[in-house]
Design a protein around this nucleic acid. Structure first.
Lengths: 137, 137
DNA sequence: TTTGTCTTCACCCAATCGGGTGATTGGGGC
DNA sequence: GCCCCAATCACCCGATTGGGTGAAGACAAA
């Protein structure tokens, strides 16, 4: 939002410069009134499109925002989240254990507790719920 | 793309009308040169932003389009796809069997073949690959 | 200090899953 | 007619998973 304000401010500044330039007809002394006007119109329409695209692109690559509220209400711990993240990547319990430098039993415990908190009873259901709750991308 | 062309054509039409209006100063006879120019600039920048947003919104509702090409190159059959779809929903083999009115063994066979074609060896990996290939949402 | 939570690990057991082999049926194409 | 392939099902086996119980250390809060 602050970004938008800055951009509009900048646009107004540019506007002033262009007007001053046109006012004294430094560059366009040979151009007629209509032509200079259309130039300005096209220029600013282009700028509008460009800025809009830019703003959109800035927020469009729908970068994932973790839903911390959901994590808190579910009561998922740090370690449980780490295990779930690996789970989402398609790793087996043994692979998760290797990745996190813990025993398979530990991974199983974390997953058991996480499943209980998520109210699911399979890995795929867990993943679907995590995605639905915006806890993982 | 054709849509864009239409819009730009329309914009040019509006441009002409505005210029004619300004040329004869029907509405702005009391306005100074700078003010009318800034009016045009702001107006067209706004139009540019508006059109850009509009175009973006038109294509943004990223509704899912099945990647039939990927399905064909992988050689996934109709039944395999049906099973994979249920799999994605988080169903167990038995639940898939009940949903599709076939035996669990059949489901297992389809899944086995599908896994081979997808070059994966677990349900979660299969889901990840299917999503990456845009075969399921 | 006691309590509670998080993290770690172990053992057990039933259910499920992944993977292999083999067989039958029906439809389409040669 | 013959062949191929999708679809269906069966059986087997080892690996994995889901779920239960228990316990120990660490650490923060009461």
């Amino acid at each position: 939002m602050r970004r938008t304000i800055w951009i509009y401010g900048l646009m107004l500044g540019v506007l002033v410069v262009v007007f001053k330039t046109l006012e004294y007809k430094w560059l366009i002394k040979d151009l007629s009134w209509q032509w200079s006007l259309s130039l300005v119109a096209v220029l600013f329409m282009g700028l509008g499109i460009w800025f809009s695209q830019h703003l959109n692109k800035a927020k469009a690559p729908d970068r994932f925002k973790v839903n911390q509220t959901a994590i808190d209400t579910l009561g998922l711990s740090t370690r449980e989240l780490a295990v779930l993240e690996k789970l989402t990547a398609g790793l087996s319990n043994q692979q998760i254990a290797d990745a996190l430098f813990v025993s398979v039993n530990t991974v199983k415990t974390h997953l058991k507790n996480a499943f209980t908190k998520l109210e699911v009873n399979s890995r795929v259901q867990a993943i679907n719920k995590l995605k639905a709750l915006q806890i993982v991308p």
